[in-house]
């Protein structure tokens, strides 16, 4: 087995740009950092003296807090800026805000923004690394890294494993990033949900599409539920939440179609009773809370890799990559 690790990017803005080896390098560091969670002194001195700014222009609990804890566990200083408390509400442009943050001596920016491509844009204009914490419906790379890390912890190698992603694919950056990551790791992906929420174009990414829930669940090793995004869908994509629930909600009966050792995932926040029955979300098959814990260590890995000087050395050899 190869023991080579590699990271050749200034920024982490998408999974699409990462190689399989880079995804595995993040997982390797996440495993190293996970080991530190169980000890008396949880803080590592690794990023002492670095300053991380979280720029969150869209609401978030777990991603924002996980990035804050991740930075603090590595001894970086961290400050979070939310849109309502920033000069963006006074009309300052994103570019100006970001350049001010850079001028304030930040070493890295973590950004969530409603516009697809915004993290890439910042990465191009700033000298410091940018980590994408979700850009519109484009990508949420650290979510896919923590999801695949969680799957590997439970299932081992993902090559040949079957993952069913259920629900709103159309609006989901989590789905897009996971599809890229899972394909690179060799898993088979089936997308399932209302036809209006699953673009046919996803077949070109190598996904199977089905609207038959029973078939999608029967041979899955993993079922990944996605949040129904009330704030984006309005009422245009399915008639009602009740209708969605009747056809696609994961309830006790439908969960019995799953293999006994299949795992249930959800990136959160969970709409209990909509995507999944409350009891199932808390069942032994659910790894929803493990995903949250792994969100810390995966983000420690992402911060570390984007701030390591090995990355500068590698970038010097490969200037074409981001």
């Amino acid at each position: 087995m190869s023991t080579t690790t590699t990271w050749r990017h200034k920024d982490l803005t998408s999974i699409e740009r990462l190689t399989r080896e880079e995804i595995e390098t993040v997982h390797h560091y996440a495993a190293q950092f996970k080991q530190s969670l169980g000890r008396t002194q949880k803080k590592l001195p690794t990023l002492r003296g670095k300053t991380v700014i979280n720029l969150f222009i869209e609401p978030s609990t777990r991603t924002r807090v996980a990035f804050e804890i991740a930075a603090k566990r590595l001894s970086a200083d961290v400050t979070t800026i939310e849109e309502a408390a920033s000069s963006l509400v006074k009309g300052e442009s994103l570019r100006d805000t970001a350049e001010v943050i850079q001028a304030l001596n930040a070493d890295l920016i973590v950004m969530r923004h409603r516009s697809p491509g915004s993290a890439d844009y910042l990465g191009k204009i700033l000298n410091i690394p940018v980590i994408n914490a979700g850009d519109g419906a484009h990508e949420h790379p650290t979510q896919a890294l923590l999801d695949t890390f969680t799957m590997k912890e439970r299932l081992g190698d993902l090559a040949g494993r079957k993952v069913t992603i259920l629900g709103d694919i159309l609006f989901s950056r989590v789905a897009r990033s996971n599809i890229w990551a899972l394909k690179k790791l060799g898993a088979h992906i089936t997308l399932c949900g209302p036809a209006t929420l699953i673009p046919e174009s996803f077949r070109s990414l190598g996904c199977e599409i089905t609207h038959n829930l029973r078939a999608a669940l029967a041979d899955a090793d993993v079922v990944m539920l996605l949040r129904i995004q009330h704030e984006r869908q309005a009422s245009t994509h399915f008639p009602s939440l009740g209708e969605y629930k009747a056809l696609y909600s994961l309830n006790e009966e439908r969960a019995s179609w799953l293999k006994p050792d299949a795992i249930i995932m959800h990136p959160g926040p969970v709409n209990r009773g909509v995507e999944i029955d409350s009891a199932l979300a808390d069942s032994k098959q659910s790894v929803i809370l493990e995903q949250v814990t792994n969100g810390i260590v995966t983000r420690m890995a992402a911060l570390f890799l984007c701030l390591t000087k090995a990355n500068e050395l590698n970038n010097a050899q490969a200037p074409a990559q981001s």
Binding site: T5, Q32, A310
Partner: peptide, 13 residues
């Protein structure tokens, strides 16, 4: 992660 050269090279897996 306590080494003074941890950010200079990647760890083997």
């Amino acid at each position: 992660f306590h080494r003074d050269d941890v950010t200079l090279k990647l760890l083997p897996s």
